[in-house]
Design a protein around this nucleic acid. Structure first.
Ligand SMILES: [Mn+2]
Ligand SMILES: [Mn+2]
Ligand SMILES: [Mn+2]
Ligand SMILES: [Mn+2]
Lengths: 217, 217
DNA sequence: TTAAATTTTTAGTCTAATCTAAATTTATAA
DNA sequence: TTATAAATTTAGATTAGACTAAAAATTTAA
């Protein structure tokens, strides 16, 4: 069994490595987990010892299959609890992350299976993120950032790649919520801000926002 | 804020002291919490330091008002989560305790208030134990004899008004133990015997038995 | 009312996870 | 291609919580 701390390290590495793809540096992890690089080094040794990560001194880490499986399981729990909080307890989508950060560490496979069933086997969480099944499989969905879209292209808002409450509230206020249909009307030359049509109105969003809003074409 | 360990100590002291009444010994706590007496002594010093218990060396401990309030809050969370697990996720009443032991430590007042509301403000948990309100107040238990119940009514076996061994053994043998949920299915006209649903089975009890079994509606 | 048994506390270690400061390695830039 | 900067690791401490063994206090029993 893994400690809560180990689980948080694995989850962080998973996210920072783009779902297990690229290598992650010690400093990246330290920043994400709000700790010091020296603490991270200690933990990396331990996780490597346990066969959860591939670690070579000074060269960053990748997850092993075992470590990736563990990370995905935590992500799965996190997202299912977020669905519960929003769908059943009427929380807003910007209010659930911190509570889910705690709930994701409850250790009971049967609990999560029952919860999943109770929620009607949802495939996405309140932020549009995919919920893996109990074997760690995602049914994939190709999302594209608004910043990568061409002028004239349309699509449906289906996710965010930045989960801070402030960003979510900003989206909320501008009517940029999951499921909304948008069209890219123009991209401003000098600051790359994007003019959208959404809700039959025009809206301008910054390049930063456009990079973090994910669209299903 | 209190650590998970501190919370478990407070909860243990609360239960061992009969809900905050009597003093509790170091050894009692050690046994309940599955640890050594010396570890308990260390923790008692810390809890006393924080004003959560009254502690005099060699003389056991009692909870302060502050400590008792904290303990009751944990008990409240524990019992509400147990209701959730049984009522919403279809766990059986004997399967929920360990999971609730973990869930009770999730730190969010708003979460528990929303959960309570979602569950319909239950007053008892799946074992017939009272659920305190958010101010730490317990409803006085209103117990009703089965002989006074209407056909169709449900409730939880919560006490007996006849304590003879023979009666208790009779109850035990028929699965009519404290905490069990029962429904009155029928009352026989000519001898006032009662047909109950208990454990998903029918059981018939005499008028005499029905008069001595106390139910929490 | 002493002596023995039990309970509780103290003293000293241990582990997980963290930190600061210093050393080392790798990367970057003159 | 050196020198400097940045990233990373090591060394040494610290804190919470738990343990063992030994000492001290309390209780029980002869
Ligand atoms: Mn989240
Ligand atoms: Mn999410
Ligand atoms: Mn319980
Ligand atoms: Mn219970």
């Amino acid at each position: 069994m893994h400690s809560l701390t180990e689980e948080n390290y694995l989850k962080s590495i998973y996210h920072l490595s783009n779902d297990g793809g690229t290598a992650v540096s010690t400093n990246n992890i330290a920043e994400a987990i709000n700790t010091k690089a020296s603490s991270v080094t200690d933990m990396l040794k331990k996780l490597a010892e346990k066969g959860l990560i591939n670690y070579i001194k000074y060269q960053g880490v990748t997850l092993t299959d075992k470590g990736k499986g563990t990370a995905i399981d935590i992500v799965r729990k996190h997202r299912l609890w977020e669905v519960f909080l929003v769908e059943k307890l009427n929380f807003k989508w910007d209010e659930v992350h911190d509570i889910a950060e705690e709930l994701e560490h409850i250790k009971s496979d049967i609990l999560i299976e029952r919860l999943e069933e109770f929620l009607g086997n949802p495939k996405v969480d309140p932020h549009g993120d995919l919920i893996p099944d109990k074997y760690g499989k995602f049914n994939k969905k190709e999302l594209v950032r608004i910043s990568k879209m061409e002028v004239g292209q349309s699509g449906t808002i289906s996710g965010v790649s930045e989960h801070s409450a402030s960003f979510l509230q900003y989206l909320e206020k501008n009517g940029l919520t999951l499921g909304k249909k948008i069209t890219v009307l123009d991209v401003i030359e000098f600051d790359s801000s994007v003019i959208l049509e959404v809700n039959n109105k025009e809206a301008t969003i910054s390049r930063e926002a456009a990079k973090n809003l994910l669209i299903l074409l």
